[in-house]
Design a protein around this nucleic acid. Structure first.
Lengths: 197, 197
DNA sequence: ATTTCTACCTAACGTTTGTTAGAATTTGTA
DNA sequence: TACAAATTCTAACAAACGTTAGGTAGAAAT
C-alpha cells in the first residue's frame, strides 16, 4: 500500500519529466513555460510544484540522469576484457541505442545543459569532462596496444561523440534506415572512414 | 560621403549582429534579452530598434547568412573538377575554417534555428534539406565513381556534418590543438576511421 | 465519524519580456 | 551659425514569466 502510493506519485513525477524533456527538446528550456508543461501533463501550472521544486530542478534531474547513465556504461567498458575495437563498437552501439530509446532526454542534456543553475552547471561540466577524459584514455590505450590507428585521441573522442549526439536530431524511422542499419553504418564509417582502401 | 554614412550605419548593424551571435551562443535565443544585447552594444534597448526591426529579425539574419554561405561553398565544390576524395577534404576544411572564424554565428545557426518565426522556419528547413540532399548526391556520385567507400551516403553525410558542427563546442586553441592540426586530424579520422588497417 | 494526508485548484504576486511613442541629443550640411 | 537628418534617449505599455498563498475535494487512517 505504502509502496503503491509512492509509485503513483513517482509515476506523475516521471510523466512530468518525460513531457518536460519533449518540450525542452522542441522549444528549448527558455522557450518552454511551466504553463506549457502543465497543459501537457494535464494540470494547472501551480500544481506542478506539488511534485517538483522548481523549473530548474526539472532540468537538473534530466541532465544528471543522462550523464550518470553514460558514465556508468563507460565504467563497464573500462572493466571489460574485450579487444579495444570491440569496446569502440560497444560504445557506439550504446550511444545509438540511448539516443533512440531516450531521444528527448539526451537531446536536452546535449543542448540545454548550459541553462543549469550556477552550482549545478559546474558539477555537470565536471561530469562531462570526466567522461571525455576517461574515453580519451581508453582510446589512447587502444592505440598503445596497437589495436587502433594512431589518430589524435582527443579529436577522435569528440568526432565520435559529436556524430553520436546528432543522431537524435536527424534520425527518424521514416528515413528508411532501421536502428540496426544505423548502428552498423555508423560503426563502419567511424571505424573505417569513407575513403576507399 | 554618402557611402561613408551608410557604412557607419551598416557597421552598427554588424556590431549588433556580432554581439547578438555571441550572446545567443552563450545564453540561447530565449535566454538573451534585448537589454542584455543593448548593454553589449553600448546603448539602451529601445535604441536597437533604430537598426533592426525585431529580435526575431536578428536571428533570421544570422541563420540565413550562415546557411547561404555554406550553400554557395557547396556549389563551388559541385562545379570543381577535383577527385571526390579531394572534394571531401575541401568540404571538411571549409567547415572547420568557418567554425573557427565565425564560431558564434555557426553555433547559433545550429542550435537556435528552431526559434525562427513560423514562415522563416519553413524556409530555413528547406535550405538545410537542400544542402543535405545535394551533399548526399555528391557522396553517392563519389561512390559510383569508385573513389569513395560504399558506405550509406545518408549516414555518412550526417556523421560528417555532425562531427563538424560540434567542433565549435569543444575546440579551444588552448587545448593544444592548432587549427591546422584539427583540420588534418578530422580529415584523417573521417576519411580513414580509427580502425587500424 | 472525524481527522489527516494527497493532489489538485484559483487568484494573484512581483519581475522581466519585447516593443512603442515621443522627446532629446548628436552629427553632417549649407 | 542655423537647419535638418540621423541616432539615441526616457518613460511606459501589455503580455508572459516562475512562483507563492491559500483553499478544496476526495481518499486513507484512526
Amino acid at each position: 500500500m505504502e509502496s503503491l502510493l509512492k509509485n503513483k506519485k513517482a509515476d506523475k513525477l516521471d510523466l512530468i519529466l518525460k513531457e518536460a524533456a519533449k518540450l525542452f527538446k522542441d522549444k528549448g528550456f527558455g522557450g518552454t513555460s511551466m504553463r506549457d508543461l502543465a497543459e501537457k501533463v494535464g494540470m494547472e501550472a501551480p500544481s506542478l510544484y506539488y511534485h517538483i521544486g522548481s523549473k530548474d530542478e526539472i532540468l537538473e534531474k534530466i541532465c544528471f540522469d543522462v550523464a550518470c547513465t553514460y558514465l556508468s556504461h563507460l565504467e563497464e567498458l573500462e572493466l571489460s576484457n574485450e579487444p579495444y575495437l570491440d569496446k569502440m563498437k560497444s560504445l557506439i552501439r550504446l550511444h545509438v541505442r540511448m539516443m533512440i530509446s531516450n531521444g528527448p532526454e539526451v537531446s536536452v542534456t546535449n543542448h540545454d545543459w548550459k541553462y543549469l543553475s550556477k552550482e549545478k552547471l559546474v558539477e555537470f561540466k565536471e561530469l562531462r569532462r570526466l567522461y571525455e577524459n576517461r574515453l580519451t584514455t581508453l582510446i589512447e590505450a587502444g592505440i598503445d596496444a596497437e589495436e587502433l590507428a594512431p589518430v589524435n585521441a582527443t579529436v577522435a573522442v569528440f568526432t565520435l561523440l559529436s556524430s553520436l549526439r546528432w543522431i537524435e536530431y536527424w534520425w527518424k524511422p521514416q528515413r528508411g534506415i532501421s536502428a540496426k542499419e544505423l548502428e552498423n553504418s555508423i560503426i563502419t564509417i567511424l571505424l573505417n572512414g569513407i575513403e576507399k582502401n
